[in-house]
């Protein structure tokens, strides 16, 4: 009977089993983005869907991140072929309308899709409150380390990525993020950001 060898074998198995048990508590598909906390990648993209009311921007206009300093920017990547985007569409529009009078800018970025399909999709959903832009070659999507759609980024007045959300986003969650950013900029007037667009 070689109990020494047996106990070594058993002891060797313990850390492996423990590792697996720990691994089961993790989601292998959840990959932490390095972006939050860093300066948001800049972009200047052309509007293809104007949005509505006071939030509207003319089609063909360029939306550039640099010109939105001092504003909270909510950047939502979506596509007409994306099933989960249907779930968040109304929530995003509602949140955009809620902050229409505040320094908050919502921007939709169409991902791997054509403008016509995008406008059709918006029409079928009964409109979109805020403008959407085209991202040729998905350059901006790659700059933002996109895995798929929908993904939503919240950028603060200083142009830093504060939060990244994967999958359909809810109005409540957006409200929480935006309110805390607006509150922070309100109590810190010593560091006023530049004025809004142009």
């Amino acid at each position: 009977m070689n109990w020494r060898r047996a106990s070594i074998a058993v002891l060797g198995a313990v850390p492996v089993i423990a590792l697996f048990a720990w691994g089961l508590t993790r989601d292998p598909n959840e990959i932490v983005s390095p972006l939050p906390g860093r300066q948001a990648p800049t972009f200047a993209l052309g509007v293809f869907a104007s949005g509505e009311g006071t939030l509207a921007r003319p089609v063909g206009d360029t939306i550039a991140l640099d010109r939105m300093r001092g504003q909270v920017v909510v950047l939502n990547f979506w596509a007409s072929w994306c099933l989960a985007c249907l779930d968040e569409h109304a929530e995003l529009s509602a949140a955009a309308l809620r902050y229409a009078e505040r320094p908050v800018q919502f921007v939709g970025v169409l991902y791997n899709d054509v403008a016509a399909a995008g406008t059709n999709w918006i029409a079928r959903q009964g409109g979109q409150a805020y403008p959407s832009v085209l991202d040729p070659g998905a350059r901006t999507a790659i700059d933002y380390g996109l895995y798929g759609v929908p993904e939503t980024f919240v950028i603060d007045g200083a142009g830093r990525v504060v939060y990244k959300h994967i999958g359909p986003v809810s109005a409540a969650l957006l409200r929480m993020k935006i309110d805390s950013l607006l509150a922070a900029s309100a109590v810190a007037p010593a560091a006023p950001a530049l004025d809004g667009p142009r």
């Binding site: 060898r5 047996a6 074998a9 198995a13 697996f20």
Partner: peptide, 25 residues
């Protein structure tokens, strides 16, 4: 289901180690 498999792997490894040790001669 992962935890069930994990328990089974543990039983297989530990059981086999004991059996093999018992037959080492």
């Amino acid at each position: 289901i992962g935890y069930y498999f994990l328990a089974f792997i543990a039983v297989v490894l530990i059981g086999s180690a004991i059996l093999i040790a018992g037959n080492s001669d």
